[in-house]
């Protein structure tokens, strides 16, 4: 096997690994920006094609941040080119409404998590974005700052206000139950 073939193979393995690890989270992240699942998949597909074009050595170390940055830029570019806002679809709004559980109902863990995730959808775009990067990807404030262009201070502020707003949207006993779990 020639050197070029070896390089192609290792590059393919590198991208495959990245695909299996980040495909889902990136689609979720892009969806949060473009609000359309097919478009989000387009964005992520293009992100990985771009990964193929990169010098592996350069992106390997900060791969996660690189992927989220490129994915974000692609998603924003789509929004800019289309020059239109995509509102939450009725279907999604109905889903949010439909899965809300009455406060007095004894909810199990999954139901309570579903309530939290539905409330999450009602945060502002920028709050939701940093929450996803923090809790889904475990990025630090500094890494989120690199991916989004926000200062670390603003990342912390958005997370603080986002979590505070989430708490205000949830039934009072929801977190009490979690603490007792």
């Amino acid at each position: 096997m020639g050197q070029n073939e070896n390089m192609v193979e290792s590059r393919e393995q590198f991208v495959e690994q990245a695909l299996s690890q980040y495909e889902g989270p990136l689609i979720g992240y892009a969806f949060g920006i473009v609000h359309d699942l097919e478009r989000a998949r387009d964005v992520v597909q293009d992100t990985f094609i771009r990964l193929y074009q990169q010098d592996r050595e350069k992106v390997q170390r900060g791969l996660k941040t690189w992927l989220f940055t490129v994915c974000r830029n692609r998603a924003l570019d789509i929004l800019r080119k289309e020059k239109r806002m995509i509102a939450l679809e009725d279907e999604k709004a109905a889903r949010i409404e439909g899965t809300t559980v009455a406060p007095d109902r004894a909810a199990d863990w999954e139901e309570r998590v579903a309530q939290v995730m539905d409330a999450l959808n009602r945060l502002s775009d920028n709050q939701r974005e940093v929450v996803r990067l923090k809790f889904q990807q475990g990025l630090s404030y500094k890494e989120i700052s690199e991916a989004t262009g926000l200062t670390s201070g603003n990342v912390g502020f958005l997370l603080h206000t986002g979590l505070k707003r989430l708490r205000s949207m949830l039934p009072e006993d929801l977190l009490d139950n979690s603490l007792r779990k």
Partner: peptide, 12 residues
């Protein structure tokens, strides 16, 4: 929230 994100499943 972490648990909720773990349950999310999106595929290309």
């Amino acid at each position: 929230i972490r648990s909720g994100f773990k349950g999310e499943s999106h595929e290309l």
